[in-house]
Each structure stands twice: as C-alpha cells, then as structure tokens.
Design a protein around this nucleic acid. Structure first.
Length: 932
RNA sequence: GCGCGCGUAGCUCAGCGGUAGAGCACCACGUUGACAUCGUGGUGGUCACAGGUUCGAUCCCUGUCGCGCGCACCA
C-alpha cells in the first residue's frame, strides 16, 4: 500500500470491478429489500441534494446486501416534462430558433438527444458516487413499458370516472402556454397597490367604490358584491351599475364571502379571472367574460382601445383612463402575493380552459388511512402531520399540460367533440364504432400528462406492472423511500394513492425524509445564486478559475456573474481540494441529522478526508506488522489489550447497527469514527507496539496481538463499508487473506469482495467487562503522565520514572502486570507504588480518576511556582465541584427523593474530591519546601 | 391566521432530567519506523430569554424574542 491515501487511484478501478462482476443485482437468499431511487430529472446533472440522498440509499442498500437480503436498488431517471422541455427550448432560443420552427416531431427527437446526453452524465455521476444501483434494471419514465403503465392507469381511471375532462379556471402560465396544478404555483410576496375605483349606479343614485389590486380585470367584471349584512350597502343590492369604460350594466349582488372590513366592503367580481370570483359567479349565475388570450394579452371581447394590450400595459392604460374620468378615488400601497409558475417564474393567470383532472378524494381516503394505521411510517414522524393536513384539503388534480415532451394523453375526439379514451387509436376507433355504429375520423388530444403522473407509478411501473412479473411480486411493496420534504405532496402522496389504487398495497413501508442541503450560509443551493457545488468537484477537486467559469456560465441572468465570481473567489481562494468519494459520503452521513436542513461545511469534509487517511495508515501499520508472519497457526494468547479492543469493537458493532436501523446515519458515523480513531488507533495500536517490538514476549502473545490487529480491522472494515465503500474494499482486499475469517464468494470461484461479506454481528466480539475494567488504570497512568509532560513542557523523548497511588490494590496489580506496556507507551523508566514512607525527589503531580501520578523533574527545583500554580488551579476546580456536591447532599429533599443510586454516587464523589484535595495539599507543601 | 422546525464553544453540529460533547478554528509542545491529511497537552459555553413542574432542568411544560419553512387568506 502507498504511504498516503489517494482516493483517485482506487475508486474508479473498484467501481468497475463491482459493476462488471454484476454484484449490484439482487442475489441474496434472504428477505427482499428494495429501494426505488427518486428518479433524477434528465435536465442536467446531479446536485448535492442527490449526492446526499444517494449516499444514504447506497448505505442502506449495501447494509442489507451484506446482511444477505435479496437487495434491489432500482435505478432510473425522470423525463421531467416542463423542466426538460424548457432546457431544450432555451438551447433552441440560443440558436435563434423555436420549437414551433422545428415542429412537434423534430422537437421531441431533439429532446431525446438531450435526454441521452444528460442521462449519460447522471450515470457517470452515480458511478463516481459509488452507488450500487442495479444498472441492468435501469428505467426511464418514458420507456415503452413505463408509458404503457401510464396509459393503462389513465384508461382505467377514466373508465371508473376518476379521470374526467372539465372546463374551469386553471392556473395558466402565459409564458409556457400550459396549465399547471395547484402545487406548481408559488405565491410570491410583492409590493403592489390597492386601487379604489368609482363605479356609478345606473339610476344615478350614487356610486360604489370598489378596491382592487388588478384594475385591468374590470373589463371582465360581471357584478359588484357586498356582504348581505352590511348596512352601508344593503339598499344597493339588486341595483345595476354602469361599468365604466365598457358601458355594460352589471348587478350589485350580496354574498357572504365578502369581507366588509377589507377595502370599502365592495368587491368587483371577475368570474373569468379570479378563483374566488369564479365560485361567486356560479352562485349568482353571473356571466363569465374571458378578457385574456393565451399570452395574457387582452382579447377582442374588450373595448377597442384595449385590445391586444399586454395585461400590465392595459393596467396602466386603464388606471390612466379612469383617472381622466375622475373615477379613481385613491391609490394605496398594498402587500400581496403574486402567483408564479415554479418553473417559468411567470405571473400566472386564472384562465378558463378544458383540462383533464383526476378526481382525488376517492384516492386520498385510503392513502390517508395507510399512514394513520401505520402501514406507512414517516421518519421523522412529524412529517406525517404535513401529509395529513395536505391530504385532508386536497383538490382535484389537473393532469393535462399543453407541452410536447411527455406522455401524450390517450384520448381521441371525433368531429362532434365525442371523446374516446383508449390504449391506442385502434381501440379508440372501436369504441367510436360501438357508440356511433360507424367509423369516424379521430384526432388525438395533443396535450401531455403532468410529469408527476408517471412518477406516481414509479414503484410498480419499474417492476413491470401491469404485468404480474416476478420482480413485482418480490420487491413490491418496497422497503423504504428516501427523499426530501419538498416533494412529499408532488410525489410521495401521489405514489401512495396510485400504489394503493392499482396494486392494493402500499408502495413502501417507510418514508425517510431527509433535510435539504444548503450552502454554508444556510441558503438553498441554486444556479442563479451561484452557490452550487458539484459533488464531483468535491471528489476530484477543482481549481478556482474552473470553478468560477462553471458557476458563471449559462446563467439565466448574466448580470449575476460579477457577484457570483466575487463570492466564489472569496469563499474558495484555493479552489476545492480533491477529497474523494468516501470522504464525501462519510460527511453526508455525519451531517444527516434528523429533521434539520444541512449547511454544507467544507471543514467537515476536510476532517473526514483525514479520517480516511488515518484508516489507511492504520491499515499499513497492521499489514507491515503481520504480513511476514504466520498469524493463523500455533499457540495463541490474548493480552488484556487484545481482549479490550475486541470488546470495544463488539460495543461499536452494536451501536452502529442500532443507529443505522433508526436511520441515524450521523450517530452511526460518529460511533464508527470514534472507535477507529480514539480506541483502535489512539490506544490499541500503541498497546500493540511493545508486544510486537519486544524480543522477550512469548510468540503466543505476539500471535494473539497480530490476530487481534487483523481481526478487529477486518470486521471494522465490513462495519464501515456501507458508508465508505471504496477505502474499505481496498484495505480489505489486503487484510482479509491474512485472517482466518471465511471469505464468502458467489459463485465459489468468484473474486472476493467486501461488498458481499456478512455485516458484522456484535456476538462475534463479545463484551469483556474484565478487560475493559483492566485497561482503565493503564489509560489513566498514561494520560496523567502525558498531562504532566504537556503542562510542564517535558518532551516525550525525555524518559522519566513515575510514582503512583491507585484507588485500590487490584488496580496496582493490573499496573504491575502491564508495566512494560505503560513504560513503552508513556516512555517511562520505572513505576513505583507510592507509600507513606516513600522518599521522593521534587515531583510534579497529576490526579486522574482516583490515580495520582508523580513525575520527578529536576526542572521543578528551578521553577516550583509552575507546579504550584497548576496545583492551585486544580484545587479550585475540585473545590468548586465539591461545593456543588455538598450543596446537593445538604438538601434534605434531594436525599429523600432522589434515587438511592444517585445519592450514593454523590457521596462517593464527595469522598473522591476530599481525597483529591488532601493529595493536592500534600503536594503543595512538598513543592513549597523546594522554595526554601 | 393555523401548523412545523430551529436557537448549545469563534464556525458547523451532536446530546437531552442527575459531573456540558465532537469536528473545524485557536494556543503551546513534539517528527521514536502507521499517519504532519499526524501526535500530545491546552484555551474556549449563564445550553436565546422569562416563568413553571421537579430533590434536581440545556433537556419536560407555558410564555416571550429571534431565524427558517409549510398551509390558508389576500378584492
């Protein structure tokens, strides 16, 4: 092995080997375990959020595969209708052409080209992240088989009356020229105005003043409404108003939906362009006037001067004209929410169109029940609340989109407007013939389905539904869905509804909701903010110039470039270092705390890269001390240290397994980190050195230590593998052959891989209380000696003797038995038990856990004050603690009410502190002697 | 307006009724054969604030403040 850990050298090579051996495909003989990847959009590349979630999914997948489960991680991508169409349209615009120039067929061909390219990029990224997805089963939402599932679902829902075509107001995107579902509307805070307009009564008896944020819609007004109880206006109800600018007569109606407190209490009613007004219009049988076209410009149904004007131009014009007529009472500033499309950012317009809808209530009821009765469990549970509140208020789902890229709706129309929904044109024709008794000319609906319609089927469409395939029977319902809270409504809820509807079973048993990855300031990462980090740049590194170019090119608003460049240069003056996939993955795991967004902190990945390097070097140490020896045959004797580290590994296995089961990847990572660094490397490797380097230690004992070094490392690598797949495989390949563990190979003549070895069980490394207890005095003495050295600047290279007192004789026996070890690790000459009659030279003293360690230092004679000040500090600390304890025990209520255990513990502490103070004071007087 | 989350060391975050933790940063010392991507020691905290419950509260409850998010309203 090389002296330094270099991830670049190992990662790609290993991934190819795993993939080429087909080890990602389900092959376990145990329970089925399946995770459906949330299919990334083929709009571009994977971002940090993907990399994060994929790390967790891969960890779970690898864990279960090692446990022998029949494990499938289903890979695939999503066609992402609007988003992808926009990307390709933008490319066309850049080339000074449009999709309309190309025509539908050529345009779609063009999108397929883009899909191939983007899909390749995504695959490459997945591979670099080490994701053990089953590539042989990769799916795309517009694959023929998946499209067939979409058609099947559409036809069946239509047959049951759960899909219907309706004419009503929808959220219309006047830039993209498509309808959107409610979920795709993002209300944005805006500063606008409230215009108070005078509407004269037809009989000349006065006027009503209406307040509106959208004066241009007055051209479509068909009533003015007041609250029925509103005394101010009761007399006007039923009268007619002469609508200014148009001269139309509209009634004054009374409706309880009017808020008398708002504005003047009079509302202009525009049923054609406002959801509330639409409802009110229905209640009062008001006519509906459509004043906007698909671009949200005014139609020919308005007075001539305003025709063809854009809505915002028309607004100015109308306000000016009203002012000229002295019909504007006043204008107030007003904060409002403007509805914008989540993709285009355009201000949406409520618009009357024909669209397809899913009748949602019958689907929602069982989906609510599934979460209520625990068939599906949210982790963390708090997200179930959000799910319920949305599901209880859910509205019918508008599924048709006026786009080209997507699943075309399987509906055909004849010349009379009859609708025939069927799997294909032939079947539609058959239906027409059955109904009309003759052949007719059919035209297919041009619209496509909301992209989430096919995503909703993903858990079963990828497994072959509507066919009852073996895969479907084996892997459905899937085990867990790992995704972000931002798509609970878009995706999770809809999968549950569709899954229950078409398979009769839940699509997954658990939903693990991750936090969102944010930048170091807590901002969402986005291209326009210029704060995106490509996960591959963390793996491979990137220099500053390349990073700046990457962040500033292809911006929607090119003028952001200067700011982005400045911020980037400030934050990454050196660019980004190459950390490797394992370090990135471990960082994601360590940051994956429950129910909290994640600020991505480069400091963390730095630390975990170092961790990888630490393991690498620990492995080198183990190998260079074991490779040239026959470790597996001959007598074996285990030292206290050997038994201790085995016991600690057992505890770590237990902890890690438990944490992974709870989806506490952060705590699993922490337990793995702490064991490797603070126990195995910091202590056990040091303990092993005196044994291995001694010329007098028995071979059996050396063999015991070598076996332990190897066995603990080998099992630990398996324990860590789900989080750091590459490093663990690379080291394991070198380590496993030296151990006596039975290596699993499938088939028997196959190459060995850590991927398919069993995940460690705690019982393989049983707890050894006696060993754990025995190591405590060794650590205490070594730590105390180091503290003396550290605080008095005594270099480690300077040997010295120590005098010690122990809490009891047992501990002293342990110290005697392991004297060589302590002497070696702490670089000590002699260890002498301190008795009342001991004669000591000038010493520095350190107390720790009931042990006192004295180190004779000639330098103390020159500077006793250094020691005295250390002692004074320690005494103050001890006294403070003592005072707290005494206060507690002085409280009768505490003694009476606290558990006996706690009271006893406090009493013991008081005794310990008192003993410490005596020891400190004795030492103080000894040192003071030196000053004389 | 309803709901949710968060506020712990300079920074990023664990913890959670009984002696406040980690990484990074910082200070001092140190290259002996695993590792300077390192080792050893150290500095650093009224656990946002105020009440309450409790023998005991960073932890449980109530309220306040601050930050973020979702839903609803929004003429």
């Amino acid at each position: 092995m090389d002296k330094s850990y270099n991830p670049r050298d190992i990662e790609q090579r290993l991934y190819e080997r795993w993939e080429n051996n087909g080890w990602f495909a389900p092959a376990g003989t145990g329970q089925p375990y399946c995770i459906m990847i949330p299919p990334p959009n083929v709009t571009g590349t994977l971002h940090m959020g993907h990399a994060f979630q994929h790390t967790l999914m891969d960890a779970l997948t690898r864990l279960h595969r090692m446990q022998g489960d029949n494990t499938l991680w289903q890979q695939g991508t999503d066609h992402a209708g609007i988003a992808t169409q926009m990307v390709v349209e933008r490319q066309l615009n850049a080339a000074n052409t449009t999709r309309h120039d190309l025509g539908r067929e050529a345009f779609i061909a063009r999108v397929w080209e883009w899909k191939a390219q983007s899909g390749d990029t995504i695959s490459r990224q997945e591979r670099r992240l080490g994701n053990s997805v089953d590539w042989s089963r990769e799916r795309f939402t517009m694959d023929p088989a998946l499209s067939e599932a979409v058609t099947e679902v559409f036809v069946r829902l239509h047959e049951e009356g759960l899909i219907y075509r309706g004419k009503r107001l929808v959220n219309w995107d006047p830039v993209l020229h498509t309808a959107l579902s409610d979920l795709e509307v993002v209300p944005e805070d805006a500063k606008g105005h409230l215009w108070y307009l005078r509407y004269p009564l037809e009989d000349g008896s006065g006027q009503l003043i209406v307040a509106t944020t959208r004066p241009e819609t007055m051209l479509g007004d068909t009533a003015v409404a007041v609250h029925p109880e509103d005394e101010r206006y009761r007399q006007f109800v039923g009268k007619q108003i002469r609508l200014p600018l148009t001269g139309r007569l509209i009634p004054v109606v009374a409706d309880a939906a009017v808020d008398p407190q708002f504005g003047t209490g009079c509302v202009k009613i525009t049923p054609g362009h406002d959801f509330n007004d639409y409802e009110m219009g229905k209640r009062h049988q008001l006519p509906l006037i459509n004043i906007f076209d698909a671009d949200a410009a005014l139609t020919d149904d308005v007075p001539e001067p305003y025709r063809k004007l854009d809505r915002f131009v028309a607004r100015k014009r109308i306000v000016a004209d009203m002012e000229a007529l002295d019909l504007v009472e006043k204008i107030e500033p007003h904060a409002l929410k403007v509805p914008r499309g989540d993709r285009s950012g355009a201000v949406l317009e409520p618009w009357l169109t024909d669209q397809w809808y899913v009748s949602i209530a019958p689907l929602a009821a069982p989906a609510i029940k599934a979460v209520e009765d625990g068939s599906i469990r949210f982790v963390p549970e708090t997200w179930a609340k959000n799910y319920f509140s949305w599901m209880h208020n859910i509205q019918d789902w508008c599924i048709s989109r006026q786009l080209w890229w997507g699943h075309q709706i399987p509906a055909w129309y004849d010349a009379d407007g009859n609708i025939f929904v069927a799997h294909d044109e032939e079947a539609a024709q058959a239906k027409a013939r059955a109904k009309l008794g003759r052949d007719v000319t059919l035209t297919r609906d041009e619209d496509v389905l909301d992209t989430w319609f096919s995503s909703a089927l993903w858990p079963f469409s990828t497994l072959g539904w509507p066919q009852q395939t073996p895969e479907l029977q084996t892997f459905y319902p899937t085990s867990v869905l790992v995704t972000g809270f931002d798509i609970i409504f878009f995706w999770v809820a809809r999968m549950i509804m569709m899954g229950l509807k078409f398979t009769g079973q839940v699509p997954f048993r658990e939903v693990y909701i991750t936090g969102l990855i944010r930048d170091e300031n807590g901002d969402k990462m986005s291209k326009s903010k210029g704060n995106i980090i490509d996960p591959l740049d963390l793996i491979d590194g990137i220099d500053l110039e390349a990073l700046v170019v990457k962040r500033t090119s292809g911006l929607m608003k090119p003028k952001d470039a200067a700011r982005i460049e400045k911020d980037t240069r400030k934050q990454f003056p050196e660019g980004i270092a190459a950390y490797g996939t394992d370090a990135l993955r471990f960082t994601f795991a360590a940051l994956a705390t429950m129910g909290r967004d994640i600020r991505f902190d480069l400091g963390r990945i730095d630390g975990y890269r170092n961790f990888a390097n630490k393991l690498w070097n620990a492995a080198r140490f183990v190998l260079m001390n074991t490779e040239t020896h026959d470790v597996t045959s001959g007598d074996v004797q285990y030292s206290v240290a050997d038994r201790w580290i085995r016991s600690r590994l057992g505890a770590t296995i237990e902890e890690t397994r438990r944490r992974l089961e709870d989806y506490r990847f952060d705590l699993a990572a922490q337990s793995l980190y702490e064991f490797a660094w603070y126990e195995y490397c910091d202590w056990y490797l040091e303990f092993s050195k005196p044994v291995l380097q001694s010329e007098t230690v028995a071979d059996a004992l050396k063999r015991g230590t070598r076996q332990t070094l190897l066995a603990v490392l080998e099992a630990y690598l398996r324990l860590l593998h789900p989080l750091m797949p590459f490093l663990t495989e690379e080291i394991w390949q070198a380590v496993a052959p030296l151990t006596s563990v039975e290596v699993k190979r499938v088939p028997p003549d196959a190459e060995a891989t850590i991927m398919l070895q069993p995940y460690p069980h705690a019982h393989e490394f049983a707890r050894d209380e006696a060993a754990e207890k025995a190591v405590a005095p060794l650590k205490a003495l070594i730590l105390a000696t180091r503290q003396i050295r550290g605080q008095l600047d005594v270099p480690r290279s300077r040997q010295m003797p120590i005098f010690v007192t122990t809490p009891g004789d047992q501990e002293w026996d342990v110290i005697v038995a392991n004297g060589d070890l302590i002497r070696f690790v702490a670089n000590i000459t002699d260890i002498t038990q301190l008795t009342a009659s001991s004669h000591m030279p000038a010493t520095a003293m350190q107390l720790i856990d009931g042990y006192a360690v004295h180190a004779p230092l000639s330098s103390l004679i020159d500077d006793p004050d250094a020691e005295l000040s250390r002692l004074a500090k320690r005494k103050a600390k001890t006294r403070a603690e003592l005072a707290k304890c005494e206060a507690k025990l002085g409280n009768q209520n505490f003694v009476a009410n606290a558990p006996a255990e706690v009271v006893a513990q406090e009493r013991a502490r008081i005794a310990d502190f008192n003993k410490e103070i005596v020891q400190i004071e004795e030492q103080e007087s000894r040192v003071s002697e030196l000053k004389k």
